[in-house]
């Protein structure tokens, strides 16, 4: 479904992503692990089209997307739920969600259906549908960001560090919800995390990114037992 071949990305003349190749199939739930500054966010922004790779190719369902503007990539069904959430702070919760359904703005029925679906996934958003997004707590904003990304019915969701800055209890809930999205809605998910333990518990397999290069990959259970991963990311 998603295929990266020898992707390099520079930011301000510095090479951040070196020669990354990976492949993710329909329905998979894949983790992207790495410490702070390893290049996880840059890689996701490159896939989503916010940054353009300096070389290499990215294909989504057989279509080359590495030169496409972001909104076209969203239209193909590949959606990034970014780090820092990037919500519309002065718009209501419901308007934030409706903006998420922008690619299908002409199909009011489907918009309503998706809205009902994310409301059943996140009941708290329904209770507070008229509240301004900027007044939410960190955990609630993260839920809203995921819900907004789901509003366009994406085939594949890139989740960039959804657990960042959340309390442990909330992280657990978040992990359950993300698994549910993968299983129930059949959405392919690529999850970037510093919290390797959480990520490897719920995903099928994972990639490890170090200094912008992919150094390791494998089944999540294998990675969990891997000595170097345990040392570097789990701390046991």
């Amino acid at each position: 479904m998603l295929k990266l071949r020898n992707v390099h990305t520079d930011i301000g003349g510095m090479q951040i992503i070196h020669n990354v190749s990976m492949e993710i199939s329909q329905g998979e739930f894949v983790a992207l692990l790495g410490s702070n500054g390893a290049g996880k966010t840059t890689l996701f922004r490159t896939i989503a089209g916010v940054l353009k790779p300096n070389s290499g190719t990215i294909e989504f369902n057989g279509v080359e997307i590495h030169r496409m503007p972001v909104h076209k990539i969203v239209g193909l069904g590949l959606v990034l739920c970014p780090q820092g959430r990037q919500l519309f702070p002065q718009l209501s919760v419901e308007k934030n969600l409706l903006m998420g359904a922008y690619p299908m703005r002409k199909d009011k029925m489907r918009m309503q259906k998706n809205l009902d679906r994310v409301y059943s996934l996140f009941p708290i958003l329904k209770e507070r549908s008229n509240q301004q997004a900027g007044t939410f707590s960190g955990g609630e904003q993260q839920m809203l960001a995921i819900a907004r990304a789901l509003m366009s019915d994406p085939q594949m969701l890139l989740l960039d560090e959804p657990s960042l800055g959340l309390a442990p209890l909330i992280v657990k809930q978040m992990a359950d919800t993300i698994s549910e999205i993968n299983k129930e809605l059949d959405t392919t998910i690529f999850l970037s995390e510093q919290n390797a333990n959480m990520a490897l518990n719920i995903t099928d397999r994972g990639y490890v990114l170090e200094n912008g290069a992919c150094v390791l990959s494998g089944e999540s259970s294998q990675l969990q037992d891997d000595e170097s991963v345990r040392k570097a990311y789990i701390g046991a």
Partner: peptide, 23 residues
């Protein structure tokens, strides 16, 4: 919706792009 996109882009340009709005 067209009017709301103006507010969305003003409040968060990148967020707007990522929801599929042609900024």
């Amino acid at each position: 919706i067209a009017g709301a996109t103006i507010e969305a882009v003003a409040q968060n340009r990148e967020g707007a792009m990522l929801t599929g709005i042609n900024v």
